[in-house]
Amino acid sequence: MKKFLGILFIILIFASMAFSAEKTILISTTTSVENSGLLSYILPHFEKKTGIKVYVVARGTGAAIEMGKRGDADLVFVHAKELELEALKQGYFINRHDVCYNDFIVVGPKNDPAGIKGLKRASEAFKKIANSGSLFVSRADKSGTHMKELKLWEFAGINPKEQSWYLEAGQGMEKTLRISNEKQAYTLTDRGTWLAVKHRLEDLTLLFEGDPILFNQYGVMAVNPQRHKHVRYKEAMQLINWLISKEGQSLIGSFKDKNGNQLFIPNAK
């Protein structure tokens, strides 16, 4: 009993040691960015240069923007341009900049029952999937990918909700891909996640790509300091300016996944 208390006491002493007091900012981003490893590749360069420690919290795009709106982050780095512009207009954020892009692709079962391979337009591909009644797995988590998917259904003139072939996963990209693999279903994915996990998804293959509508623009914006006085606006702007600077952009371009694929194409103006 006494020994037990002693151990607990030691734990308490460790725990009471002050957590580091250096200058920090908090960036909220999407799970796909965090999982790609991009930020842990480029941010150390920024931290070394400025002495500002950057904490990254990864959420779905909707939640990541919401975090900024509530003042729980200093800046956001996401890929849902329409949502971003709307939040910007509402005055939650300021100084939005395009940073880079990658693209979405449609993957599906190898035998391609809907016959979408070789098509030119994404809306056409989605129509074919719906008409053939092939299974389609949706992220259904309000992520950027999910938003893009809904847009594509809209363009195809189809309401997939409540359809027997439309499965709503409510999960991240990797899990959604795994579900598609198990169910022999089509799904929309970002290229980065697909490249990272495709070797485990033996029953899926890339079936559709290249339509400019599938380009996935990443943007960064600072939380409006007039809305939330406590945010570290100055430091957030330092990071934003660095991301769109020559140094930041070339680092983004040079980032490769473990299979050597470039995942993000820098395009800051």
Partner: peptide, 20 residues
Amino acid sequence: NIAGYTRVMTTTIAMETDKG
């Protein structure tokens, strides 16, 4: 789940599983 700050075993497991 902030790397080096609030990342613990269980949240790492969840994240790394997501990453594959």
